[in-house]
Amino acid sequence: MTHNTPLSPRPLHHLADGGRRLVTAAQLRRHGVSAAATDEQCRPGGPWQQLLPNVVLLHPGPPTSEERLHAVLLYAARERPAGGTVAVPVQPGPGEAPAPAYAEAMITGRAALTLHGFSATPPLPSLDVIDVLVPRLRRLRSTGCARIVRTTALPTAEQVTGVPVAPVARALADAVAELTDAGAVRGLLTEAVRGGHCEPAAVVRELNRARLLSRPHVVDAVDSLVAEGRALAEQRLYRMVREHGLPEPVWNVDLRLPGGPHLGGLDAYWPEHAVALELDTRGHRQQDDALWAEHARKREHLERLGITVVHVTPRKLRDCLEHQAAVVRTALMAAGDREPPAHVVVLPR
């Protein structure tokens, strides 16, 4: 075969139509392009190029960031059956079909965080490798710009600019796994919380699942993250009381029975109504089940004493502040219909 030998004009025209520029070797074969013909087109200086094993870019110029992302996904995704989508539109425009789903593959790590809008991660063109998350038993190896990250349970991907991307907490864990600089880790975790991308508890769960909490620089960063998350949640709580016209509570107090045991700490307490509010900001050194059991025991004890406990999470305060204010207001209004509570001593915490 010579350089000028035509290669199935109809299929090649179809593949290149509409900006569709990436295909797998298997997809080419299904359109009548042999392996030998593909190798000929991908020779140095040829019209095509092989970006990754079995992934072909149908133009000779440097790949764009979008093309690199889709190439990594094509390389890692489980092959679609014959008759499926044969190429990837790099930037779907109005009226074009959406980007195809990639079976058992999604972008994770720093590339995913950049797609989620993080400023602490490099822009896509600056990344030498792109992490892609796949099931643990997939037979793949890292190569070229694709770094394989394995997991026993693939999360539900989020679509960002037509690309399946791991949720922020999972992408953070995969990014942190590759970092040894404490400042870089702290910067990523801080941006995750301050930027409202996710709650500290979700990040901590993923870091714990990835067994990264044994690394001192990660533990230090997580301590800062938990403190940051709690401070933000407390600010939202103060704003909820102020902006929604709730009575001013006493803040950050301990309750005790007169001459008796300690009943627990509370973030806010309305003594005249016997209504308590507790923020759920669970620490990373305790198992969720054990800590939830402790919360439940305290709540049951307080309610037996006639104290209503409102339990809120930082996420609820972030996403539905007005609804949380209504919950507290309802509890306060219902106070007059309850039996008088037991007398408790309120102390500053």
Rank of each mutant, 00 (worst) to 15 (best):
G46A: 07
L73I: 03
L58Q: 10
A101M: 06
R338F: 03
A97S: 01
P258K: 02
L279S: 09
Q159H: 00
P11I: 08
A166W: 02
A274I: 01
D267Q: 14
H3D: 15
C42I: 08
L255D: 12
T108I: 11
R29S: 14
V328N: 06
T190S: 14
A201Y: 09
L52E: 14
V312A: 14
V23G: 04
L317D: 12
R139Y: 01
W48C: 03
H3Y: 07
H262N: 09
P200I: 09
A177D: 15
L189Q: 06
R29Y: 10
R211A: 15
V168W: 08
P340H: 02
A192I: 03
W292L: 03
I130N: 04
R215Y: 07
P167I: 05
A76F: 04
H301F: 08
H14A: 06
E243P: 00
L212I: 07
A87F: 05
G187D: 13
D39N: 14
L188W: 01
P11E: 09
H284A: 14
G45Q: 03
R43N: 09
L257V: 10
W292I: 00
G283A: 15
E158K: 12
V226W: 00
V344D: 09
A26S: 15
R230K: 03
V185L: 11
Q91V: 10
L237W: 06
H343S: 11
R205S: 06
R141N: 07
R139I: 01
E248V: 11
A153V: 12
L52C: 11
G144W: 13
E158W: 03
A268Y: 12
R256W: 08
P167E: 10
A97I: 02
L305M: 11
Y75T: 12
Y269D: 10
A105K: 10
P81T: 03
A293P: 02
L317W: 09
L347I: 08
L263G: 14
P11T: 09
A268F: 11
T24F: 05
R315N: 03
V134Y: 12
T143R: 09
D288P: 02
L22C: 14
W270A: 02
D128Q: 12
E158V: 13
L69G: 00
V275I: 13
P6C: 01
G283F: 09
A25L: 15
K316G: 14
V218D: 07
A169M: 07
P6Q: 01
I148R: 09
P63L: 08
L73D: 05
Q324F: 02
E96D: 13
H244M: 00
V327L: 08
P348W: 01
L124E: 06
L140P: 00
V176F: 05
T2P: 00
Y102S: 05
G19F: 02
P94Y: 06
N252I: 03
A16N: 11
A192P: 00
P47D: 13
L22P: 08
R186M: 01
L317S: 05
D319H: 04
R285E: 12
Q27R: 10
A25K: 05
H295I: 06
